[in-house]
Design a protein around this nucleic acid. Structure first.
Lengths: 242, 242
DNA sequence: ACATAGGAAATCGTATACGATGGTGACATG
DNA sequence: CATGTCACCATCGTATACGATTTCCTATGT
């Protein structure tokens, strides 16, 4: 009888966080306290407290008298986060790999095979989840709990950015899977902490590089479209066609 | 006229955080909402929201119907945090050092000299502050804002642990200052990101090692004292002397 | 003296109430 | 027609009120 029902504040917190993570509340979405309160059948107080926690975790930005908006993220911030993730996860992998059991190695190989399959099937969601799972298997053996928590926090924030899907830039997926194989091998032959860390970090940074290239191209496309649009306006001035 | 007075919640947040950081509320201290509310002349609501933020940042732990207590920290957690700090700051230093100006180098040298002086004067507080300042000079040039924010967050949490004073384990201070000199030199000759990162990380990890040794010895002393106390009780059973 | 049950006081969690503020649209004015 | 102003409304921030739960003290029995 020592356990409690979850408090309304906790419910509100998990509900809101869930919605941010799954995209129901996309970047920039304004969370209106009263609306959420009515929806959950509680008063505004628990909602407000939940929002404060989300604020501290960086999921929303609160401006006084203006309300809470889901954090909008730009490419720059995304890259910064990904770098930090690369560094932390690289270190964590190095700290953890010597504690991996045979079962762990088996699980890593199986997960990576499943990723290969998911890639063939173009199942982005499954691929993403498996990718997370792969690194989670290693992280579970990391003795530094604080480090692991930090990594999870960074990952969650990046999930909220909804750019993560672009983990799956076409050929990056193949490279990534191959790198997983290599990583497994390096760890299996106990190649040393430094080499493992360097490789694990590089694995993430490669995704970052791929993102950079994709982003640049994306911007060029947008610019071209704007250019095209501007040109077309000179032929058809606004308001002439309706 | 677009600016606001700080909200009461903000005031509460900064006040509480300040008190945790400066030790007014030591680890384990129970923060009673009503008391703080009366003291600040506000209602409980802003206090509660402030506490939620502190909770999310890890400064306090909240148990339902029991209240918020300043996070108690054990040696293990301290070591974990320090490791993460070492890794992040090492990377940040490597990313930043090529942007250091001549003025920055000058400031680094001066700060380190001031540390030498503070060490001679046994001015722990000043030494600590200068040490922070030294690394801050470098951090200012780090292009990865998210990384810098994370480092600051980790540092603040470690400050709250009130163990940081042990930065100043006797001979560790000398070594630390010498390492700063070496770091300056490595950066000045542009020895490369990898070497800078490795050295900067090692610099922090050395403090961690010093802490480990100190902690072990400390525990041994406590154990001895207990042993001594137990032995003395056999001669003077409790309650005989009053 | 010690353990235990019971209850009062302290404290927490949440609802309701209301002033404060910012955005929006109607309306007036050039 | 453009622009500025003013009043209204949605929403935020905070105070007060009150039931829920823990904590602590006390009285009681062994």
């Amino acid at each position: 009888m020592t356990k409690h029902m979850p408090s309304k504040q906790q419910v509100a917190y998990h509900t809101l966080k869930q919605r941010i993570l799954d995209g129901t509340y996309g970047p920039g979405y304004r969370i209106v306290i009263d609306r959420v309160a009515k929806e959950l059948g509680v008063s505004a107080i628990p909602i407000r407290e939940a929002i404060r926690r989300l604020e501290a975790e960086g999921f929303v930005e609160v401006e006084r008298f203006s309300g809470a908006k889901v954090t909008r993220i730009d490419a720059r911030m995304y890259e910064d986060c990904l770098s930090v993730l690369a560094v932390l996860e690289g270190y964590a992998t190095a700290q953890a790999y010597r504690s991996l059991t045979d079962d762990d190695f088996q699980a890593l190989r199986e997960t990576n095979e499943a990723m290969r399959q998911a890639r063939s099937d173009f199942d982005l969601t499954l691929y993403s989840r498996l990718n997370q799972q792969f690194h989670e298997i290693i992280l579970r053996r990391c003795p530094n709990r604080y480090l692991v928590d930090e990594i999870h926090a960074v990952r969650e924030r990046m999930d909220a950015m909804r750019v993560s899907v672009f983990n799956l830039i076409p050929h990056r997926a193949s490279d990534s899977i191959a790198e997983h194989d290599k990583l497994i091998q390096l760890m299996a032959v106990d190649i040393g902490e430094e080499a493992v860390e360097r490789f694990a970090r590089q694995h993430r940074l490669a995704t970052l590089e791929a993102f950079r290239r994709w982003n640049e191209q994306h911007h060029r496309m947008v610019a071209e479209r704007k250019e095209w649009y501007r040109a077309s306006r000179e032929v058809h001035p606004p308001g002439t066609d309706s």
